[in-house]
Simulated assay, not measured.
Amino acid sequence: MKTDPAGTPTEVDDKLLVNSVVKAFRVLEAFDNANRSLNLAQISASVGIDKSAAQRFTHTLNKLGYLHKDPVSKRFELSLKSLEMARHFIRANPVINQAMPYLLHLSRTTEETVNLTLPDGADIVFAARFMSRHMLNTDVVVGTRMPAFCTAPGRAILSRLSPGEARQLLGGAPLQAFTAHTVHNIDDLMRRLETAREIGYATAWGEFFPGDLSVASAIIDKDGRPVGAINIGVSNARYTPEKAEEIFGPLVTAAARSVSQGMPPPV
């Protein structure tokens, strides 16, 4: 596969691919929590384009309202308009709309952190999050991406795939140890998926964040495919894994089942 200097597929691979659109999105993706504002030289280096091209892309995105340019420093940053795409996605997504009342109910009744995550290949992405007053880790926000293999919602989703499909996804993922408790051997993971499939929910005990205890159950569409997961996360300072599983396993399972039953037919 041929790519440009930034690793972006070129038109040689796909005659319908518009490279300028690809690069415009690469410019937007250059901004993150570590790079809140960037100058032209930094954008040029990050995207792999020359400074003249960086100037044209940033000028266009600024005129469209997706980038803000500081008149003094000449540095760019994402504008509030960039949030609108996320808002459109959230309003249009049937899983989020169907799950929201159940997430709110779980949040109010448990007073713990409740999340909705959606699958994206070998990852999960947080689509809704109700924080607990007990939660100390506030780094996770809507849009945060995590690997599926070492998170309870990811395992819940994987457990509802066929064993062959789940193994294929795991085989293509970088299975690294994030903590001393991370299970990252495929055979061990497959055994955990089998258990989750049998009991209706999955668990992860401090495998991505130390001290985090998480219990999750998958949301299933009308075709039987996993389309999301509801999880409750608590701290091991307040719960043992056994107690967290005993209390929250039935709750997330019931909530996910209710959401699944109300899912509209696939378009």
Results as ranks from 00 to 15, higher is better:
Leu28Pro: 09
Asn231Ala: 11
Leu104Asp: 13
Ser52His: 07
Gln261Trp: 03
Lys243Thr: 14
Pro174Gly: 00
Ala202His: 06
Arg167Gln: 14
Asn236Asp: 15
Val125Tyr: 07
His181Lys: 15
Arg197Lys: 14
Val267Tyr: 07
Arg167Asn: 08
Ile199Met: 07
Arg257Thr: 13
Arg26Met: 12
Pro147Cys: 01
Val259Tyr: 06
Thr240Met: 12
Ser217Ile: 03
Phe209Ala: 05
Ala148Met: 15
Tyr201Leu: 06
Asn185Trp: 00
Met146His: 02
Thr195Ala: 11
Thr3Arg: 14
Cys150Ile: 11
Met135Arg: 15
Ser107Trp: 15
Gly121Ala: 05
Leu103Phe: 04
Asn62Ala: 12
Ala152Leu: 05
Ile96Cys: 04
Leu64Gln: 11
Pro210Gln: 09
Ala41Pro: 00
Ala237Tyr: 10
Thr110Cys: 04
Pro119Asp: 12
Gly233Tyr: 00
Asp120Gly: 10
Cys150Arg: 03
Gly206Tyr: 06
Ile230Cys: 05
Arg75Gly: 00
Phe31Gly: 02
Ala99Pro: 09
Ile124Gly: 02
Val227Asn: 05
Asp212Asn: 06
Ile157Glu: 05
Gly249Trp: 12
Lys15Gln: 11
Leu189Thr: 09
Ala24Ser: 15
Ala156Cys: 01
Glu29Asp: 12
Val114Lys: 10
Lys74Met: 11
Gly249Gln: 09
Ile232Tyr: 06
Glu194His: 14
Asp4Glu: 06
Gln176Asp: 04
Pro94Val: 07
Ser73Glu: 10
Ala99Asp: 08
Lys51Trp: 01
Arg36Val: 11
Met146Asp: 01
Thr253Ala: 13
Pro265Asn: 11
Arg56Lys: 15
Ile157Met: 14
Pro147Phe: 03
Asp221Asn: 15
Pro226Cys: 06
Ser159Met: 09
Ser260Gln: 07
Leu116Thr: 04
Val12Glu: 15
Gly211Pro: 12
Leu103Ser: 08
Arg225Gln: 14
Glu77Ser: 15
Asp32Met: 02
Ser52Cys: 00
Glu112Arg: 09
Gly233Ile: 14
Ser260Arg: 08
Pro266Ser: 06
Pro94Thr: 06
Val12Phe: 13
Ala256His: 10
Arg167Trp: 04
Asp187Ile: 03
Leu158Glu: 02
Asn185Pro: 00
Gly143Phe: 05
Ala30Pro: 09
Leu83Gly: 03
Ser159Trp: 07
Ile124Phe: 05
Phe130Leu: 13
Val259Asn: 03
Asp188Trp: 08
Val27Gly: 07
Thr60Phe: 11
Phe126Lys: 01
Ala156His: 03
Asn137Ser: 05
Gly172Val: 07
Asp120Trp: 08
Asn236Gln: 13
Ala54Gly: 12
Ile232Met: 09
Thr203Gly: 00
Pro226Ile: 04
Tyr66Trp: 13
Ala152Phe: 09
Ile43Lys: 04
Ile232Ala: 05
Thr60Pro: 00
Ser214Thr: 13
Leu61Ile: 07
Thr138Ile: 11
Ile96Gly: 01
Glu207Ile: 12
Ala173Tyr: 02
Ser20Met: 04
Phe89Cys: 01
Gly7Lys: 06
Arg26Lys: 15
Ala204Val: 05
Gly48Asn: 09
Phe208Trp: 13
Arg129Trp: 01
Pro71Ser: 03
Ala202Cys: 07
Phe178Pro: 02
Lys23Cys: 01
